[in-house]
Design a protein around this nucleic acid. Structure first.
Length: 892
RNA sequence: GGGCGAUUGGCUCAGGGGUAGAGCACAUCCUUCACACGGAUGGGGUCGCUGGUUCAAAUCCAGCAUCGCCCACCA
């Protein structure tokens, strides 16, 4: 093995080997683990959220593959309608090309080119992360096969009456000239004004000849068809039933009362514009008011409004306010904070606009989709997201699915201009099936991107034409995704899957923490606080990034990622750096083991020494813990506990303890150590593999067979090797051995502490005496070689009646008194100070324990084990205090 | 407005009714033949605030504060 591990050269080679070895394709086995990747948009590059998502999925898939479960991880990308169209539009604009000039067909071709390029990049990035997903079988939400599935869904729902066309207020983006769904719109508070406008009454009432309405949208007054007041506003009740004469347009409109109105806001009079406000639309519908659209698709005032026609909404606002002012009808202007909806793509202010749209009626879909989550057929991890889902489902309104875009699935509805026939069809037509006429046209709109991605779990698996492909792989096992698309995507997948496949799309939904920038804000391009996962991989290697990400998988909603990108573009992340150090540690420890394998033949691990028994016990518990952690999606604990195990137990102690036998031991002894090390290392690599596939695979390739399965590795990959079986290693669990080891380890630590305090050379052997109970003395004696070797101890005297030697420093710890002989170097004042500090701490602890024990309530109500533990602690502390006092007085 | 989460050492985070943890950073020592991306030894925190439940609260509950996210709404 090379002295240093180089991720940059190793990772690409392994990816190639794995793919050539067919390791990424679906595996056969017992049970099923099918996962669909949340398809990234073809618009861009992988970001940290994807890196997190894909690392989690890969860890789960690799784990299951190793466990012998049949795995299938499905790759694909999303055409991402608006997002892609906007990017391509911009791209073309830079070349001086307008999409309107080149037309729909050529524009869609340009989108396809874009998708091939960027879809390819993102797939390469997924590959580079080490994701063991089937790259040979890539799906796309606009592939011909997928398009047929989308079309079938539309047609079936259309014919079942679940899809209908209707006039609705939609959030219209005048710049993208498309409707934006509520879920895609972004609200932002902005300083604005509340204009108080006077509307003259048609006939004065009790001497009042005008009322004042307050509005943030004066330009929409051209479309006003009523004025509303609150039913709880007695002062204004007398005006209800009267009319006002709308200025400028001279339209006589009624005053009515409606619960939408808050009597304490503004003036208590609300101008009602059904065509330009969702609430007004609702009020208008309830009170039978006309809907008058005053804007065209670009938010320009339509003809018929004199000087105002042809103005855009901003110009119109100014002109109309001026008009009111000139005519003495502008009461006053008030400054307010006002939240304005913006297009999530182009950031233009959205216009509530009345238009013809397609909708999915959700009434019949939401019931079943609610039930499966309530019943636990679909389980959310962490559990709290269940409530988020249910609340959203409860408040669900019909879903506007039409988009006025060119890039997307075109709505398969055909109209005959000759006879008025209309239908949704699976095949294109140019002749009217009803009248035989040739004036048949297809609907111009395309479908909301989520309409196609809601089919992702089954349309990627042969539905509807090859249902056999789904057998055993649907419902999928787990969906790993971000919390912000629980409503947009997760819920819709559940609804459509239940309808079309009669089963849930997945059993588990795992929601990971949102990755925030170091300052706690969302990573965003505009803020420039984002971190590029590819750059992290360049700097630290994919394993280090993956490991760090997995340690951040906790119950939290969001986590801060500590990486910072400097002005010169270099990236630093303390935690990823530490993860890289762990990768290096794994490499070096393995290198040491493999450098000392001469004469090795595979054979079973055995607890030949106390430290062997300890190590094998620790390993057995680690296997159990790693397995149950991953099964419970507790991936952060899986990663962190493995790191502690490998670094602290295996490297810091066991390998050090093996050196004596390995380098100088007799042949038989040596062979057993080799077998134990091979067993522990092999097991550890397998446990680590799901999160750190590269370094573990690279090492495994160089390793001989271990006692774990006895098979030589030639031509085999670790990623296809068996996950260690918790049941078969559990006989190694040995609490007694662990306890004994702790005692010996403590002796070594105390010797080291003395050495550090007196700055003694690590080469120099120290003489040590330990005064302990007879039982513990035997325990230490049995591990004398370990204590001598690792502690660099010369003579070691252990017993009940050991006396403190001349010129030694003493330690008191848990019933143990330990003396390290220094030979006249003792710093009496320093020792006294140290012992007194410990004494003070012990006394304080004892006082606390005694206070608890003196509490009658505690003795009466606490669990017996707790009381026992307290009493034992009391005894220990009392002994320690007595010993410390004796030592201090001994110092003179 | 509704909901959710966070608040633990300088930083990023675990933990979670009964002796406060890790990594990084810091201090001292060590280039001993796996590893200086290392080893050893240390210093450092009344677990946001106020109440409550309990024999016992950093941990459970309530309120508050601050930060963040989601949903809804705003004439």
């Amino acid at each position: 093995m090379p002295k240093t591990y180089d991720p940059a050269s190793t990772e690409p080679r392994l990816i190639q080997d794995w793919i050539e070895g067919g390791c990424y394709q679906r595996s056969k086995g017992v049970g099923d683990c099918t996962v669909v990747i949340p398809p990234p948009n073809v618009t861009g590059m992988l970001h940290m959220g994807h890196a997190m998502d894909d690392t989690i999925q890969d860890t789960l898939v690799r784990f299951n593959r190793m466990r012998g479960v049949s795995t299938r991880w499905i790759l694909g990308t999303d055409h991402a309608g608006i997002a892609t169209q906007t990017k391509v539009d911009k791209h073309l604009k830079e070349q001086g090309i307008s999409r309107l000039e080149i037309g729909r067909e050529r524009f869609v071709d340009a989108c396809q080119d874009w998708r091939r390029e960027y879809g390819g990049i993102i797939v390469e990035q997924i590959k580079r992360m080490g994701c063991s997903i089937d790259f040979a079988d890539e799906k796309f939400t606009m592939s011909p096969e997928y398009a047929r599935a989308v079309r079938k869904v539309f047609c079936d729902w259309y014919h079942a009456g679940l899809i209908y066309r209707g006039k609705r207020i939609v959030n219209w983006c005048p710049s993208c000239t498309t409707a934006i769904s509520d879920d895609e719109a972004e609200y932002r508070d902005e300083p604005s004004h509340l204009w108080h406008l006077r509307y003259p009454l048609a006939e004065p009432v009790d001497g009042i000849d005008y009322i004042t309405v307050a509005t943030t949208r004066p330009e929409t007054m051209l479309g006003d068809t009523g004025v509303a007041v609150s039913p709880e506003d007695p002062e204004k009740a007398k005006l209800v039933g009267h009319t006002v004469m709308l200025p400028i347009v001279n339209r006589e409109i009624p005053i009515f009362s409606d619960w939408h109105v808050d009597k304490d806001f503004g003036t208590g009079f609300v101008k009602v514009t059904p065509a330009h406000d969702p609430n007004d639309f609702a009020m208008g519908a309830a009170h039978d008011l006309p809907q008058i659209n005053v804007f065209d698709e670009h938010a320009v005032v339509v003809p018929g409004y004199g000087e105002f026609s042809g103005m855009d909404r901003d110009q119109a606002r100014e002109a109309i306010v001026d008009w009111f002012d000139e005519h003495g009808l502008l009461d006053h202007i008030e400054d307010i904070e006002h939240s304005v909806m913006h297009c999530y793509r182009c950031d233009s202010a959205l216009e509530p606009w009345l238009s013809e749209q397609w909708f999915v009626a959700v009434d019949k879909l939401k019931g079943p989709a609610t039930k499966v989550v309530e019943d636990g057929e679909v389980t959310f991890y962490p559990e709290r997201w269940k409530q988020t889902y249910l609340t959203w489902m409860e408040n669900l309104k019909d879903w506007c699915i039409s988009r006025q875009l060119w890039w997307g699935h075109r709505i398969p509805v055909y109209y005959c201009d000759d006879c008025g026939w209309e239908d949704a069809l699976m095949e294109d037509v140019d002749t009217c099936p009803s009248c035989g006429g040739h004036h048949v046209r297809q609907d111009e709109d395309v479908l909301d991107t989520w309409f196609s991605s809601q089919l992702w779990t089954f349309a990627t698996q042969g539905w509807p034409e090859r249902p056999e492909e789904m057998e055993g792989h649907h419902p999928t096992t787990v969906l790993v995704t971000a919390r912000d698309i629980i409503a947009l995507w997760v819920a819709r997948m559940i609804m459509s899957s239940l309808y079309f496949t009669h089963e849930v799309p997945f059993h588990d939904v795992f929601i990971y923490a949102t990755i925030l920038a170091k300052d706690g804000s969302r990573m965003s391009k505009s803020k420039g606080n984002g971190v590029d996962p590819m750059q992290l991989i360049d700097t630290y290697g994919a394993d280090a990034m993956r490991f760090n990400l997995l340690t951040l998988v906790t119950n939290n909603q969001d986590v801060r990622f500590d990486a910072v990108t400097a002005k010169d573009g270099t990236i630093t992340s303390a935690r990823t750096d530490a993860s890289r150090a762990f990768v290096t540690k794994i490499w070096n420890a393995s290198r040491f083991v493999l450098m000392n394998m001469e004469g090795y033949t595979p054979g079973p691990a055995e607890a030949a020494t106390p430290e062997d028994a300890w190590m094998l016990s620790r390993l057995a518990k680690m296997v159990g813990r790693a397995t149950s952690d991953i099964e419970a999606y507790d991936l952060g604990d899986y990663a962190r506990s493995l790191q502690t195990f490998f670094w602290n137990d295996l490297c810091d102690w066991y390998i050090e303890l093996c050196k004596g036998r390995l380098l100088h031991g007799a042949a038989e002894e040596r062979l057993q150590v080799q077998r134990n090390l091979a067993f522990v290392l092999d097991s550890s690599l397998r446990l680590l593999h799901p999160v750190m596939p590269f370094v573990t695979e690279a090492i495994w390739d160089a390793m001989p067979a271990s006692g774990l399965d006895g098979e030589p590795h030639d031509g085999r990959f670790l990623m296809q090797a068996a996950w260690p079986d918790p049941a078969s290693v559990s006989p190694f669990e040995n609490d007694g051995a662990e306890h004994d080891f702790e005692i010996a380890r403590r002796v070594v630590e105390l010797v080291r502490s003395a050495r550090a305090r007196y700055r003694l050379s690590p080469k120099e052997e120290l003489d040590v005496c330990v005064k302990v109970s007879a039982d513990d003395a035997a325990v230490i004696e049995s591990q004398a070689s370990f204590v001598r070797g690792v502690g660099r101890v010369g003579s070691l005297e252990v017993g009940q009646d050991v006396a403190k030697p001349e010129g030694s420093v003493s330690f008191v710890d848990a019933g143990m008194e330990l003396y390290v002989v220094l030979g006249g170097l003792v710093d009496l004042a320093g020792e006294r100070a140290r012992l007194e500090k410990e004494l003070a701490a012990s006394r304080k602890d004892l006082a606390g324990v005694e206070r608890t024990l003196a509490n009658p309530g505690f003795v009466a109500k606490a669990a017996p084990q707790v009381i026992e533990a307290k009493k034992a602690r009391q005894a220990d502390l009392a002994t320690t205090i007595a010993q410390l006092e004796a030592q201090i007085s001994d110092l003179g």
